[in-house]
Amino acid sequence: MEIEKILKRIGIDDEPSSLKPSYENLKRLQEAYILSVPYENLDFIFKKEFSVNILKIYEKIVCNNRGGICYESNTLFVYLLKQLGYDAKMIFAKVMDLTYIGADYPHLALLATIGDKEYLVDVANGQNVRVPLALDEDTIVESENVQYQIKPCANGEYALMFNHKTKGWQIRYQFCTKGKTVSDFETVFKDEDNYKQFSNHAPLLVTKALRDGRITLTDDMITYKKQNDKKVWGISLENRAEVLRDYFNIQV
Rank of each mutant, 00 (worst) to 15 (best):
I57T: 00
I57K: 01
Y58W: 11
Y58H: 08
Y58E: 03
Y58P: 12
Y58Q: 02
Y58I: 09
Y58T: 11
Y58A: 04
E59Y: 00
E59S: 13
E59Q: 12
E59M: 04
K60F: 07
K60L: 11
K60H: 10
I61P: 02
I61E: 05
I61K: 09
I61W: 05
V62N: 13
V62G: 06
C63M: 14
C63E: 15
N64Y: 08
N64A: 12
N64I: 07
N64F: 06
N64G: 00
N65R: 12
N65Y: 15
N65P: 02
N65S: 09
N65A: 02
R66S: 10
R66I: 08
R66D: 12
G67T: 10
G67L: 13
G67A: 06
G67C: 08
G67D: 13
G68P: 03
G68M: 06
G68R: 07
I69W: 04
I69H: 00
I69P: 04
I69S: 07
C70L: 06
C70K: 10
Y71H: 01
Y71F: 00
E72Y: 08
E72C: 03
E72F: 11
E72N: 04
S73V: 03
S73F: 08
S73Y: 03
S73W: 08
S73N: 14
N74L: 09
T75Y: 03
T75V: 02
T75Q: 02
L76Q: 04
L76G: 06
L76V: 10
F77K: 09
F77L: 09
F77Q: 09
F77D: 08
V78R: 11
V78L: 12
Y79Q: 06
Y79D: 04
Y79V: 02
Y79H: 11
L80Y: 00
L80F: 11
L80T: 03
L81Y: 14
L81A: 14
L81N: 15
L81E: 14
L81F: 13
K82F: 04
K82E: 15
Q83T: 12
Q83M: 08
Q83F: 01
Q83C: 14
Q83P: 06
Q83R: 09
L84F: 01
L84A: 11
L84S: 02
G85H: 10
G85N: 09
G85I: 12
G85M: 09
Y86C: 09
Y86K: 05
Y86D: 01
Y86N: 05
Y86S: 00
Y86E: 02
Y86L: 00
D87W: 00
D87C: 10
D87E: 15
D87V: 04
D87A: 11
A88D: 01
A88E: 06
A88H: 05
K89M: 14
K89N: 13
K89Y: 15
M90Y: 15
M90F: 15
M90G: 13
M90N: 13
M90P: 00
M90H: 05
M90K: 09
I91V: 15
F92G: 09
A93I: 03
A93H: 11
A93G: 15
K94Q: 14
K94S: 14
K94E: 15
K94M: 09
K94A: 14
K94V: 15
V95F: 00
V95Q: 10
V95S: 13
V95W: 01
M96T: 14
M96D: 13
D97W: 07
D97M: 08
L98W: 02
L98N: 02
L98V: 00
L98Y: 03
L98E: 00
L98S: 07
T99V: 10
Y100M: 02
Y100H: 08
Y100N: 03
Y100E: 01
